[in-house]
Design a protein around this nucleic acid. Structure first.
Lengths: 338, 338
DNA sequence: GCCATGCGTCGAAGCGCTTCGCCGACAATC
DNA sequence: GATTGTCGGCGAAGCGCTTCGACGCATGGC
């Protein structure tokens, strides 16, 4: 294990000089710097993370809390996590992976031990039990998702209210008058996950404003439950011609079942999905969709966290990404529309 | 920030005593221990991670390298990652998330800086460029996956050779004489990912031994590519009645397309998948499958890493999990079999 | 009654780094 | 030519913890 002191000896300078070369916090003459850098390379020196953290009270680690749940669409989480890790690296940070399992205890542990410099929290509920702790800790925090009360918090999220509105509008524009919303699994609503409720609210408002009837049904991602949900929808509203799907796992079942029932997409029914681009383009019908910008969310979250650590960011800052609807092959004019 | 010294003062003992209470490395009388524990609770003390790492040269962190690729089935990766994080916590470790992006440089950085005590590497290629470095580092390493040469390495993986054999055998037992293998994306084979090649080898061997014809075609996870692949398979081998699918993303397209072509599962063709349980049970037909024990793999990897850290594990140790085939609704006797 | 033994506790020496204050040298200013 | 300032570098003091050796005090064998 090569130490700073050895590098210093090898380069014929003092330890502090090496440190300043590394951090750039004081000016060092070019020749000295080069000598030191050469020694570092030659000896294969890597600063000891623990010592560095102890001396500077900065760990250069960002903690990322991911949900443990299996009822969320996993690829989005993974995409966010990878974007977080990648972006963090480009800012000189590593990422500590925390699962929701420990819940608030993890927050306490990490903030208490100085393990991480900042925290990024995913899967935020409207009234999340971790929020009070996050508030109390003087540790910078960024939420991916939007709780009910954002006072003093930094959040990044897709603007799901606008997303819902956009979907309603698109279908309304095409002449659809009865729209069904295939939502997330019931459990997601029960725990008051922000994005699900917001999407719904956006849909309802805009639908009401445009004089469109809206029916919302939560749905698990399996064929069985989709089958049941679909029957109930058409029983209750036989005139339904537009679908908005928010549960990615339900997309394939929905398309399959519609086809089996002899309902053509988009001739008989139109489908709009809220999902990652890849899912939209790889489904059996290329889906009109609002993309979930997972990478962008992860990237922004890290950048906000880094800005807060640098001290150049306001305490409260809500970043809502504007939704974009891409028209593909799954939506078209409502049947009977001229 | 509460420190050890403050706890010591509060409890009226020396700092070392508090440390020994925490670590249990020396015996402490019950009354003293209780006093110290009480002080810890009362002051809300959390040991500083950096100081601890510096003094003990143990960070209590496990590094997990996940692939950055998008052509692998992501939920499996995520499941492994979460199992790793959860198991690690139960052993007192946290998990550092590294993406494959940095490649060998990440290995050097982490081992060099003492950031992590051990390393768990996913998505290992047969001739992985990280292996030499991992070998050189005196840092315990566990691979999830099997490289070509396992000398001196600790690996955990599903026994994919046996998995392939099991699939071939199952279909052969049902009377199928022509089997098609819908494989992973071509890129996966090009980079010589161990599990893909092993499965294929297991399939080929057993198929040959049982006198069954086997046709292997790589396939992306989209409908388009599945469509093309399927046509080519039936063009070349019209008598194909058995399918083995290894690419999870291809499962839904395959089932959909077979149905559209009027081929009933399992009456006309049987399908066996290699995929997580959840995928098998949620597909439009409940799939006969060999499960990918993602959680088990993550758990085992952590346990091996922890054992190596404790010094009680051999350097070389290959753990192959035995595959289990669960018969569900997608496989049945070959047509024309009595 | 004396030495060996063991248990519970303390003190002190680092672990490898950052950072503050200081100092010498040299340039610029009047 | 004395004064001020800037630049480049050094030394030393910690950061909060672990751990080793030492010490005091019972205990027990002889």
């Amino acid at each position: 294990m090569v130490t700073l002191a050895e590098v210093a000896r090898h380069a014929g300078v003092s330890a502090s000089t090496v440190s300043y070369v590394l951090s750039g916090k004081r000016s060092i003459s070019a020749p000295t710097r080069e000598r030191v850098e050469h020694s570092i390379k030659e000896l294969g020196y890597h600063p000891n993370a623990g010592a560095r953290a102890l001396a500077s009270s900065r760990s250069n680690i960002l903690a990322l809390m991911v949900p443990l749940r299996t009822d969320m669409y996993v690829p989005v989480m993974m995409e966010i996590a990878i974007a977080v890790a990648t972006t963090a690296r480009s800012h000189g940070y590593d990422v500590l992976l925390l699962t929701g399992e420990e819940g608030p205890a993890a927050v306490r542990r990490v903030t208490g031990s100085g393990l991480a410099d900042a925290m990024i929290v995913m899967d935020v509920e409207l009234e999340d039990e971790r929020l009070p702790l996050l508030h109390a800790a003087r540790q910078p925090t960024v939420l991916i998702g939007l709780p009910a009360d954002t006072v003093g918090l930094t959040c990044v999220d897709l603007d799901f209210t606008a997303t819902g509105a956009l979907c309603a509008e698109h279908l309304a524009d095409l002449g659809h008058r009865e729209i069904a919303v295939v939502g997330e699994a019931p459990a997601v609503y029960e725990r008051h996950t922000g994005f699900a409720e917001r999407t719904l609210e956006g849909l309802r408002r805009r639908a009401a404003a445009l004089g469109v009837r809206l029916l919302h049904r939560p749905c698990e991602g399996s064929y069985e439950s989709m089958d049941g949900t679909l029957s109930r929808i058409f029983d209750e509203r036989p005139g339904t011609t537009g679908f908005v799907v928010q549960n990615e796992a339900a997309i394939d079942p929905l398309l399959s079942l519609l086809r089996r029932q002899g309902r053509a997409v988009p001739e008989d029914v139109s489908v709009v999905a809220v999902c990652p681009e890849q899912v939209a383009t790889q489904a059996s019908v290329r889906l009109t969709s609002v993309a979930i910008p997972a990478q962008e969310m992860g990237r922004r979250a890290v950048e906000l966290a880094v800005a807060k650590l640098a001290g150049g960011a306001p305490a409260e800052q809500v970043t809502l990404l504007a939704p974009e609807l891409t028209v593909r092959a799954s939506s078209g004019p409502a049947p009977g529309t001229s």
